[in-house]
Design a protein around this nucleic acid. Structure first.
Lengths: 222, 222
DNA sequence: TCTATCATCGAACGTTCGTTCGAATCGGTT
DNA sequence: AACCGATTCGAACGAACGTTCGATGATAGA
């Protein structure tokens, strides 16, 4: 879908999706009414329904569109790069960059993943799985190369996505500067953690286990 | 609020909060109706309003109660432990353990942080800030002790919470075993990343910067 | 047993929501 | 000018929502 070949319809659709994504990002999907979107797009209620056939499909279009471009762009970026560690660095850098540049859509992707259901959920989830698998395979490859055996790859993968996707909860360009520094910090944090200094890991992790945690059972468990 | 001193009212309230939290966790705050909660608690609509005066206050009670016990239990756990690295390990271990043991409430805490507003939001947010500050101060102390200068502490703190709080999106006791292994993996991942092997950091992080990312601008930006 | 407080309830109110439908308007082609 | 598909609109529908209110049942001390 090259930008220069977009029809009038496509342009208008993207405008609606972007506007809706911004409101979803701000107020949340369920507290946003179609009337809110109508107001923001200066369209009528029924006029909007020319571009989607339900509110849920609108959410789907945002998520599906966003995920598709994420995966495509990421794949394109990684083609030709063979060193898995380098690939991982590029993936992290790309993900964070894309997230910050498309904060609204990515927040909707991260935060409203379960606001969708049925076939539409399955479609989006398949794309998500593709993307996660890409990262997980990368970590597996690195783990093989570096002989890493003591870190659970699944946990490491989701920890990485946790670090990256959580940013919509705290990232502020004013406080945190542009995405370059953020990207460096997180890359360094994760990568040296994953490849890390084994002496620290095995030496220090034996202390204090289970001994204090009995006291942490809360009133919730009665 | 010791468990043995809870009045009938308190017990009933906690029952309502726990039940509501479970439904909020499953369907989300905004798609849960008071009628859903009435059905689950086998109470009437109006009967529920004896325990809270609005749906938003119900959410607040869940979040406030949960945060209070998190902070209290965490502080209690750390008293007497002076080594900052050990304190951090305990905090991570505690946080993950508490999260898994109170998944519903913690998911509501993490996922519905912005579903609340006004004074109630401020109250919850203050407690959150206390907790985050506790971790951030710890990282600052460690950074001072270990001479860490190249990692942004704010980024590191929120990365840690990102790793930990993201688990409600993927953790499955069946796939991932009990919380002990999870805790070890994440502690190791973050800690050796934070204290990490400097040679890796400075040596490898210069490659590929900015060179590929031009291609990652998506249709979203037109 | 009377009574006051606690706890619960059924029924209803007003509002907002997602969605629909037939009609109107626009833009380009004959 | 007449036409046609693409696009937009106003008005309305029924359903679901949060909340309220007066009444009812339960409980325990006087």
């Amino acid at each position: 879908m090259p930008a220069e070949a977009q029809s009038k319809y496509d342009q208008r659709l993207v405008f609606v999706l972007k506007t809706a994504a911004a409101i979803f990002a701000e107020k949340g999907y369920h507290s946003t009414s179609i009337r809110d979107i109508a107001r923001a797009t200066k369209m009528s209620l029924s006029g909007l329904y020319y571009y989607f056939k339900s509110k849920e499909e609108l959410l789907f279009l945002i998520q599906d569109y966003c995920f598709s471009t994420v995966i495509d762009d990421c794949r394109r970026l990684l083609t030709g790069v063979t060193d898995p560690v380098h690939r991982l660095k590029l993936l992290i850098e790309f993900h964070l960059n894309y997230f910050v540049q498309n904060m609204n859509e990515m927040k909707v992707l991260s935060h409203e993943a379960n606001a969708i259901s049925g076939d539409l959920f399955t479609k989006v989830n398949n794309k998500k799985r593709q993307y996660v698998d890409l990262a997980m395979k990368l970590l597996e490859e690195i783990a093989r190369d570096y002989g890493i055996k003591d870190i659970n790859i699944r946990v490491a993968t989701f920890s990485l996505f946790g670090m990256m996707n959580w940013i919509y909860n705290w990232y502020s360009p004013r406080k945190d500067g542009d995405v370059t520094g953020l990207s460096q910090s997180i890359t360094q944090l994760f990568l040296s953690g994953f490849l890390g200094d084994k002496s620290i890991q095995s030496k220090q992790l034996e202390t204090g286990r289970e001994s204090h945690l009995d006291r942490s059972v809360s009133i919730w468990q009665q």
